[in-house]
Amino acid sequence: MTVHKAINEIGLIETAAPSQGESSGKRMIDLRGVYKSYHAPAGPFLALRNIHLAIQPGEFIAVFGKSGAGKSTLVNILSGIDQADSGEIILNGTPIHTLNEDQRSRWRGKNMGIVFQFFQLLPSLNLIENITMAMDLTDSFPLRERKQRALQLLEQVGIAEHALKPPSKISGGQQQRVAIARALASDPPILVADEPTGNLDTKTRDGILEIFSTLAENGKTILVVTHDKEIAACASRIVHLKDGEIVAGQA
């Protein structure tokens, strides 16, 4: 067990550390002049206006704002799940606004882990399989090593003993831990989470935050969307959004 843990620690640090080391001063996330509007029947609704945001490797960013401030839109644009109307989105050197949907999926699978508010684990698969699925789709790590790695990730988030259970048999907080483990499956340098603790009680929330802090210390770039001030307080920087604009923490 300790051996696994050791391998895991090394694995995480080894892959993430170089990007931290060589790109100090470089930008992991670079948003330039991003606009996004939605079609509402009453006319277009401007969700993001002229967003400029630069994030260095290893930063732990909290995007803070009320409902409707545009923070979820920001995360969706950043992760390539949704597309901006204009502006440039350069992540780890890749201009993802120029990629098509399939290319964005590919890129995301290798470079960015996403943690959703409602966990979004696949109900028919057990926890290990939920994690190996991410490696399978992106074809990262040799087939034989995947299960082992999935188990290590589950250990890291502290729920290895449930590895063979389906998501429906564990609590919300545990599901969110699995979702984080899945986001780490292909060892991406960036981790994005949308209200990751929105549906969890205070104690569980603190556990999740601890995991994020540890990951950031180990060199991952982390971006968490929240309307909870206490969560925001744990971050290394707070980006404050209001009515689609960044009002604080831009750079």
Binding site: S79, I81, S105, G109, A134, L137, R182
Partner: peptide
């Protein structure tokens, strides 16, 4: 979700 974690359409 599968596409969000890296799956492409052909897969």
């Amino acid at each position: 979700v599968l596409r969000a974690i890296g799956g492409v359409r052909s897969q």
